[in-house]
Lab assay of single mutants.
Amino acid sequence: MTTFKLIINGKTLKGEITIEAVDAAEKEKIFKQYANDNGIDGEWTYDDATKTFTVTE
């Protein structure tokens, strides 16, 4: 398992979430669903070196 981080830079929601997953593709799906469930629609980036997804509205 690898630890992945999501950084949220939303208009109404900001924060960080850290979760373990098998791979980045699995985690991306979970993070995007979390963002969608919380009304966050923005630009996504991924840094493989730090295993960090960022979504910015």
Rank of each mutant, 00 (worst) to 15 (best):
K32G: 04
K14T: 13
T54S: 04
F4I: 11
E28S: 06
D47M: 01
G42K: 03
T56A: 05
K14G: 09
E43G: 03
T3R: 04
T2G: 05
I30T: 03
E57N: 11
K11P: 11
N38Q: 10
D23H: 08
T52V: 03
G39W: 08
E57M: 13
T18Q: 06
K32M: 12
K29S: 11
T18K: 06
M1A: 09
A49R: 06
L6Q: 00
A49D: 10
I40S: 01
F53D: 02
D47E: 02
Y34W: 15
F31G: 01
E43A: 07
A21E: 04
D48T: 06
D41K: 12
T2R: 04
Y46G: 00
G42A: 06
D41R: 07
Y46H: 00
T50Q: 04
E43V: 12
I30E: 05
K29V: 10
A25F: 12
I30S: 03
E26C: 13
A21P: 03
D41A: 09
F53M: 04
V55L: 13
K29N: 12
K51A: 06
K32W: 10
N38R: 14
K29G: 07
L13W: 15
T18L: 10
G39H: 07
Y34S: 01
D23M: 07
A21S: 11
F53T: 13
A25S: 10
E26N: 13
T12S: 07
E28L: 15
E26Q: 07
N9F: 12
Q33Y: 02
L13Q: 11
G10N: 04
T56S: 08
T52W: 01
A49V: 10
Y34R: 00
M1I: 12
K27T: 15
T52I: 05
T3Y: 10
L6R: 00
N9P: 02
A35F: 13
T18P: 02
F31W: 06
E20C: 14
T52Y: 02
T45Q: 07
G15H: 13
V55N: 03
K14M: 12
T54W: 11
D41S: 11
T18A: 05
A24R: 08
T52A: 02
I30K: 05
K27D: 03
E43I: 11
K27A: 15
G39S: 05
L6D: 03
I8P: 00
G39R: 05
E26H: 09
V55W: 13
K5P: 03
K5M: 07
D47Y: 03
D23I: 06
T2D: 08
N38H: 12
G15E: 13
G10L: 15
E57T: 11
E28T: 05
E16A: 05
W44C: 06
I17C: 15
A25E: 10
I8H: 02
K29Y: 11
G42Q: 05
K32F: 12
I17Y: 12
D37P: 03
E20A: 09
T18S: 06
Y34A: 03
Q33K: 14
A21M: 14
K5R: 08
D47G: 00
D37S: 08
Q33T: 05
I19V: 07
K32R: 11
V55P: 01
L13T: 11
K29R: 11
T54D: 02
D47P: 00
D37E: 11
I30G: 02
I40W: 09
T18G: 04
E43D: 09
F53E: 01
L6E: 02
G10H: 05
K11A: 12
G39L: 06
I7K: 03
K27Y: 15
A25R: 06
G10W: 14
G42T: 00
T56D: 04
F31A: 13
A21W: 15
T45W: 07
A25L: 10
G15N: 09
E16F: 11
K51Y: 07
T3M: 08
K14A: 12
T56L: 08
F31E: 02
T2P: 05
T54M: 07
A21C: 15
G15K: 15
D23Y: 07
I8W: 13
D47V: 01
F53V: 06
A24F: 11
A49G: 05
T52C: 08
M1Y: 08
L13Y: 15
K11H: 14
E28V: 09
E57Y: 12
T2A: 09
N9A: 04
E16C: 15
K14L: 13
F4H: 06
A35I: 14
T54Y: 10
N36R: 14
E26Y: 10
W44E: 00
K32I: 10
I19F: 15
G39V: 04
A35C: 14
I8L: 08
T54P: 00
T18F: 13
D48N: 05
N36F: 13
E43W: 12
N38S: 05
I7G: 00
G42N: 01
K5N: 08
L13C: 15
A24Q: 13
K32N: 06
Y46W: 04
Q33F: 06
I17D: 00
